[in-house]
Simulated assay, not measured.
Amino acid sequence: MSQQSSADSAHLCIAFMVAHARTRDIAEAKDAADHAMRHLAQLAKEIPHTSPLSPEVGRLRTITYDARQKLARRQTPENMEEGIALILKIKESLEGK
C-alpha cells in the first residue's frame, strides 16, 4: 500500500469515526477508529522517521487512539476536529501541495 493510499484510507475512517461519534452511533464510531488505527500504523511504517510528517502522523495516531478509548467507554471523543485537520494536512503534504 502506498503512503497516499494509507492516508486516503485513514482519512475516510477518521471522517466516519467523527460522523458516527457526532450521531452517538458509538459501535460504528469505534469500528471506524479501529480501522483508522490500522491505516495510520501502516502509514507510520511507510513514512521515514526523518520525515517532517512523522511527528504529525504520531500525533494523529495518539488522537485516534484516545478517541477509540473514549468510544470504548461510551464517551464522546475530544480533539476530533484536530484529527481531521491533521489528516488533511498529511494528505496535502503527500500530494505535494
Score class of each variant (00 low, 15 high):
residue 35 H to V: 07
residue 76 T to N: 10
residue 54 S to V: 01
residue 18 V to N: 01
residue 80 M to A: 05
residue 26 I to W: 08
residue 69 Q to R: 15
residue 46 E to H: 13
residue 57 V to A: 00
residue 95 E to M: 09
residue 95 E to R: 12
residue 60 L to R: 03
residue 11 H to R: 13
residue 68 R to S: 14
residue 70 K to M: 15
residue 10 A to R: 07
residue 4 Q to E: 15
residue 14 I to S: 04
residue 18 V to T: 09
residue 47 I to M: 07
residue 73 R to E: 12
residue 29 A to R: 01
residue 13 C to L: 12
residue 37 M to N: 13
residue 10 A to D: 02
residue 34 D to I: 07
residue 68 R to Q: 14
residue 5 S to V: 13
residue 63 I to D: 02
residue 84 I to W: 00
residue 73 R to H: 13
residue 5 S to Y: 09
residue 77 P to H: 04
residue 10 A to S: 05
residue 80 M to Q: 06
residue 97 K to G: 11
residue 34 D to T: 11
residue 73 R to K: 11
residue 92 E to K: 12
residue 65 Y to A: 15
residue 21 A to I: 04
residue 87 I to G: 02
residue 46 E to T: 13
residue 33 A to S: 15
residue 42 Q to Y: 07
residue 59 R to M: 01
residue 43 L to W: 06
residue 5 S to C: 05
residue 35 H to A: 09
residue 65 Y to C: 11
residue 82 E to P: 07
residue 83 G to V: 04
residue 94 L to H: 04
residue 87 I to E: 01
residue 18 V to H: 02
residue 86 L to T: 06
residue 43 L to R: 06
residue 70 K to H: 13
residue 78 E to M: 08
residue 42 Q to F: 08
residue 82 E to V: 09
residue 36 A to T: 04
residue 66 D to P: 01
residue 58 G to C: 02
residue 30 K to M: 05
residue 43 L to F: 01
residue 8 D to G: 07
residue 4 Q to V: 15
residue 45 K to W: 06
residue 65 Y to D: 13
residue 46 E to Y: 05
residue 87 I to M: 06
residue 24 R to W: 08
residue 45 K to I: 05
residue 34 D to E: 13
residue 60 L to P: 00
residue 75 Q to Y: 09
residue 44 A to W: 02
residue 40 L to M: 06
residue 37 M to Q: 14
residue 34 D to K: 08
residue 20 H to I: 04
residue 58 G to M: 06
residue 5 S to K: 15
residue 70 K to P: 04
residue 45 K to V: 10
residue 48 P to F: 04
residue 82 E to L: 12
residue 96 G to F: 08
residue 50 T to P: 00
residue 29 A to D: 00
residue 57 V to L: 00
residue 43 L to K: 00
residue 67 A to W: 05
residue 82 E to M: 07
residue 75 Q to W: 06
residue 41 A to R: 09
